Simulated assay, not measured.
Amino acid sequence: MPRTLLTADTHFGHKSMLSPRMPRPRPFETIEAHDDALVVAWNKAVRPDDIVWHLGDFAHKCSLEYAASIQVRLHGRIHLIRGNHDHGLGDRLRWAGPVVDVQRIFVQDPGMPRRQALWASHYAHVTWPHAWHGDLHIYGHSHGSIPATSTSLDVGVDCWDWAPVTLARILERMAGSPATVSQV
Rank of each mutant, 00 (worst) to 15 (best):
M17Q: 08
M17W: 00
M17S: 12
M17D: 05
M17F: 05
M17H: 02
L18R: 04
L18H: 08
L18K: 06
S19C: 05
S19K: 01
S19F: 02
S19T: 00
S19E: 11
P20T: 00
P20I: 00
P20R: 03
P20H: 02
P20E: 12
R21W: 06
R21E: 14
R21F: 04
R21Q: 15
R21T: 11
M22T: 02
M22N: 08
M22A: 11
P23C: 12
P23I: 07
P23D: 13
P23N: 14
P23G: 07
P23S: 09
P23A: 13
P23M: 09
P23F: 11
R24F: 14
R24W: 11
R24A: 14
R24T: 11
R24M: 11
P25R: 06
P25L: 10
R26E: 01
R26S: 06
R26I: 05
R26Q: 10
P27R: 09
P27A: 07
P27D: 11
P27Y: 09
F28R: 05
F28S: 09
F28N: 08
F28G: 09
F28L: 08
F28W: 13
E29P: 05
E29H: 14
E29K: 15
E29T: 13
E29A: 15
E29F: 10
E29M: 13
E29G: 15
T30H: 15
T30F: 15
T30V: 06
T30C: 14
I31F: 06
I31H: 03
I31L: 13
I31T: 05
E32I: 04
E32N: 04
E32G: 07
A33K: 10
A33F: 02
A33L: 06
H34M: 12
H34T: 01
H34Y: 05
D35C: 04
D35H: 00
D35Q: 01
D35W: 00
D35S: 03
D36R: 05
D36L: 03
D36E: 15
D36H: 06
D36M: 01
D36Y: 02
D36P: 00
A37R: 07
A37F: 03
A37W: 07
A37N: 05
A37C: 02
L38N: 04
L38S: 02
V39S: 09
V39F: 06
V39R: 07
V39W: 06
V40M: 11
V40L: 12
V40Q: 13
V40G: 08
V40I: 10
A41L: 07
A41C: 11
A41G: 06
A41S: 12
A41T: 04
W42F: 08
W42S: 10
W42V: 00
W42A: 04
W42D: 12
N43D: 11
N43Y: 04
N43I: 01
N43R: 02
N43A: 03
K44W: 04
K44F: 01
A45I: 01
A45V: 01
A45T: 00
A45M: 05
A45Q: 10
V46H: 10
V46N: 12
V46E: 12
V46W: 07
V46Y: 04
V46G: 07
V46I: 07
R47L: 08
R47G: 13
R47M: 12
R47F: 04
P48H: 05
P48F: 04
P48T: 00
P48S: 03
D49H: 14
D49R: 14
D49A: 12
D49V: 01
D49M: 08
D49G: 14
D50T: 02
D50C: 10
D50W: 09
D50V: 01
D50N: 09
D50M: 07
